[in-house]
């Protein structure tokens, strides 16, 4: 795959994403937010971090960066687009995904291992994975409390667009398994055409042998399988 990772001022997970894709044998490009050429990618990553210092609202200012116009065009052509953490916030602020990431109901920045459950295999990112599997994927955010109005939530549910939910190690949703107050325990969603994924947890931080959880590799493998099958 050709993978382009966007760096905004304040992004801090761009190098992690680049490293994971590079070590898995993909062609990677690091793209500065003021660039206007995405380098013809199959997949664009909006990485985690604090773009524009999270000023005004998380992700609100990043959407005016010159490269975002190209990112939107890439997604509208059906290209894969994956926003992680701050990248998810940028996707909602850009209107590419519905809803908003509000401040955690604990009011705290949460940095911890977190189990998330695969809710659908019907996305390029979870293709072939077993629904119900719990993955240990770290989270690190203060604004990860997913919110959407009731009709919007029903649409996500009815269209099988909730990709990950917070859960415990066995895949159960119980009191205490939702770390941030996210509505319906939502940790990640996709768009109607399923090429855009936004998620708060960080699979790129759980996909190399030097870290304690390697569960993120399952998502990268799923995406690679999907891409190979399709190509």
């Amino acid at each position: 795959m050709r993978v382009s990772v966007i760096t905004f001022p304040g992004s801090n997970c761009d190098q992690d994403a680049l490293e994971v894709f590079e070590t898995r044998g993909h062609t990677v490009h690091s793209i500065w937010h003021k660039d206007t050429d995405l380098q013809n990618p199959d997949l664009v990553i909006l990485p985690g971090g604090f773009s524009y210092g999270d000023y005004l609202r998380c992700g609100a200012l990043a959407r005016f960066s010159p490269i975002v116009k190209e990112v939107v065009a890439h997604a509208q052509r059906g290209g894969y687009l994956w926003g992680i953490c701050n990248g998810f916030q940028i996707l909602t602020e850009t209107g590419l995904l519905p809803g908003t990431l509000l401040m955690n109901n604990t009011l705290q920045f949460i940095c911890q291992h977190q189990y998330i459950r695969i809710e659908t295999a019907n996305t390029p990112y979870t293709h072939g994975l077993r629904v119900g599997t719990a993955l240990d994927i770290p989270i690190a955010h203060k604004e990860g409390n997913y919110f959407i109005d009731e009709p919007g939530l029903r649409e996500l549910q009815d269209q099988d667009r909730i990709v990950f939910r917070y859960c415990d190690a066995d895949g159960n949703i119980a009191p205490g398994t939702n770390p941030n107050g996210a509505l319906d325990d939502i940790a990640g969603i996709c768009n109607t055409t399923r090429n855009i994924l936004g998620m708060m947890p960080h699979p790129e931080r759980a996909a190399t042998d030097s870290v304690s959880s390697n569960d993120g590799k399952q998502i990268f493998r799923a995406l690679e399988d999907y891409f190979t099958t399709r190509a």
Partner: peptide, 8 residues
């Protein structure tokens, strides 16, 4: 366009 998020 910018200051308010109409969702919330």
């Amino acid at each position: 366009k910018l200051l308010a998020n109409p969702n919330t």
